[in-house]
Amino acid sequence: MLVLHQVHKTFSTPQGTLPVLNGINLTLQQGDSLALMGESGSGKSTLLHLAAGLDLPSDGEICIDGHALSSLDEPARARLRRQSLGLVFQQFHLVPSLSVIDNLRLQARLADREDAEWTAHLMARLGLSGREAYYPEQLSGGQQQRLAIGRALAARPRLLLADEPTGNLDEQSADTVLGLLLDLVKETRCALLMVTHSARVAAPLDRLVHLHLGRLEDNAS
């Protein structure tokens, strides 16, 4: 599903070149869930962005469903993202101009894969039934993140990439959101790569890897 082979990433800064990832190798199969942990600045989000095709590696190769990202141009990577990937961000990144239901359907519609039954099912599972006409700013933080998860899964992606999805929530809301996320991942049988700081959040996932000084330390569970 997702293969990272000898991935390097460096950034140019006024102070010189800054290496962030050094030869990352990682494979994620259909239905797998993997937690990526590491201290702040270790390159977790950079790795997630590379996996999503939001950025390209300085060296190495990333393949999604057998497509090498470096061989795809920007529109093709965008197509791959809307057809095969789901993204959940710590900061939600909901579209404030769209109502709850329109936010939920957005990616499915962009991918031309809207399924009304699945959407209704998601609304019920997210606990947002009855709030279809609300706007994002009228929801609590937990509700907004649930909506973001629903949006990411509405098109039934093959790979879900989540960047600290509970980082902005209190403990109780975080547990609710995480439980929902894992249930829905199982239900859709997509692969999950989740970046987190919290060992408690990482615990229920199939595998756990640590990113330290730009290198992976595998702690398979």
């Binding site: 939001l54 920007e74 965008a78 809307r82 909901l94 579209v95 990616q107 962009l110 991918a111 949006r151």
Partner: peptide, 15 residues
């Protein structure tokens, strides 16, 4: 730009 970046992440081409 933040609004548009969200759409980009959802797979809308940059152009």
């Amino acid at each position: 730009r933040r609004q548009l970046a969200s759409l980009w992440a959802l797979g809308v081409p940059r152009k």
